[in-house]
Design a protein around this nucleic acid. Structure first.
Lengths: 116, 116
DNA sequence: CAAACTACCTCATTATACAATATAGTTCAC
DNA sequence: GTGAACTATATTGTATAATGAGGTAGTTTG
């Protein structure tokens, strides 16, 4: 089953920041990373990727700079800020709450009905 | 911590259908049920509740009828359809996929960094 | 009788995701 | 040497979900 966008709504920021928390990276690489990490079930669309970068930068969660590639297309690298790290931690805490709530609805009561 | 709406985005349908999968119910009762089930962390807003009912009915996932209360305000009861049950099962399967993906990002790599 | 509660509803606004579209350099098979 | 596939970034317009703000109306209780 493929993962569609409405299921991910609101978590794009967190996924991208998670990637950047390891090291600086650029759009194309992050996109591929997420694709692979999802077992090729979820591909972030380009429009989403770049609008999310604009938002994150505007909110101060990331900063960006142009890489100096000697060959190939130019790359814009993104770097997570201290605010971005704090925001990511917050998002992770939130995720745990959401997961608990949704599991209470979807899993706990329905386990016997929905074979995985 | 309270659960905000953008984290729940897209799962309102599933939560409501889950309530209705047990028995027919009406808006106000469903709202209270969700509030209690979340440990008073998440309250579905009324506007969201009723726009979701409209959508679910339009999509054929629920049907509705007016209850014949002998006293108190009128209640519109909702009933889940066969299509609604199939849709709910689909949503639950999707939830498991999403949970796995988000855990891969948020939990697996960050466990040591974010004390619960 | 007024406040609090039960119960329903709609409209306009906002935010996120994305299809469509555009630009441009690189690599590689034929 | 050229065309396809790939690398890489970006914007604009559209669709949808959630919700703030507002409205209606009956019931209970102090």
């Amino acid at each position: 089953m493929n993962i569609t966008s409405d299921m991910i709504y609101g978590y794009t920021d967190g996924m991208i920041l998670c990637c950047l928390s390891e090291q600086d990276s650029y759009g194309y690489a992050i996109n591929n990373f997420i694709l692979e990490k999802s077992g090729f079930k979820y591909e972030l669309k380009e429009a989403t990727l770049y609008t999310t970068f604009r938002r994150l930068e505007k909110q101060g969660h990331v900063t960006s700079y142009w890489g100096n590639e000697s060959s190939g297309p130019r790359r814009r690298y993104y770097s997570i800020t201290q605010e971005g790290r704090a925001y990511l931690k917050q998002r992770i805490r939130e995720w745990k709450e959401i997961r608990q709530l949704m599991d209470a609805f979807f899993i706990d009561k329905k386990e016997e009905e929905t074979e995985t």
